[in-house]
């Protein structure tokens, strides 16, 4: 093998190695990209309050049925909405109540994660108060009623008339 061939081979292998490293990072970059993608398509769950436009118009011509759902994963809590469904007009602000109760004899903290159906509801649902913004700590036997305040943006596509808002509580390890 001649000297020059070896040289260009090494140059090429370096390029390919760099490319490999770039692709490895790309794998990780898929994580924020997925989140970003979900955000623009409204699939993402942001655990932050939304800023609501004060001049939002209520669209009285439409009614949307909202079903409420609650789940608990891996902790001895009871968690339920105090009303199974509500009907609202887009643009109208509304408050719904959920209740949690700690059935165990230990203090436990949990974090609620919201999920919506249809998934793009996230984009149109503006929450300004929600128990999912912070972790919840319950003493043994303690019960708590918690509101969710939100409006549904009148921009929501016209063919949407039934939606589900679901929360799932996950246990938080102590110290988190």
């Amino acid at each position: 093998m001649t000297q020059s061939v070896t040289k260009i081979n090494i140059v090429m292998s370096k390029k390919l190695l760099i490319f490999t490293v770039v692709m490895f990072c790309f794998g990780y970059a898929l994580v924020p990209m997925y989140e970003k993608f979900c955000e623009v398509t409204g699939i993402n769950n942001l655990l932050q309050p939304d800023v609501v436009d004060k001049n939002i118009k209520v669209d009285m011509s439409r009614t949307i049925a909202i079903e409420l759902d609650a789940n608990v994963r891996g902790m001895p809590w009871q968690f339920k909405p105090l009303q199974s469904n509500v009907k609202i007009h887009p643009g109208e602000s509304i408050e719904v109540m959920y209740e949690i109760r700690n059935d165990s004899d230990q203090e436990i903290s949990g974090q609620a994660i919201p999920s919506y159906s249809p998934r793009f509801l996230e984009k149109y649902m503006k929450k300004f108060e929600c128990f999912c913004f912070t972790k919840q700590v319950l003493k043994p036997g303690e019960a708590r009623q918690m509101p969710v305040k939100f409006v549904i943006d009148p921009q929501i596509p016209v063919d949407v008339n039934t939606v589900t808002i679901s929360y799932t509580f996950f246990a938080l390890q102590p110290g988190k």
Partner: peptide, 16 residues
């Protein structure tokens, strides 16, 4: 199968 429906069930999320 008879209803032509199949949907994954994902912990922490809802689908319909």
């Amino acid at each position: 199968p008879a209803f032509g429906v199949k949907q994954d069930a994902i912990p922490g999320f809802i689908r319909d």
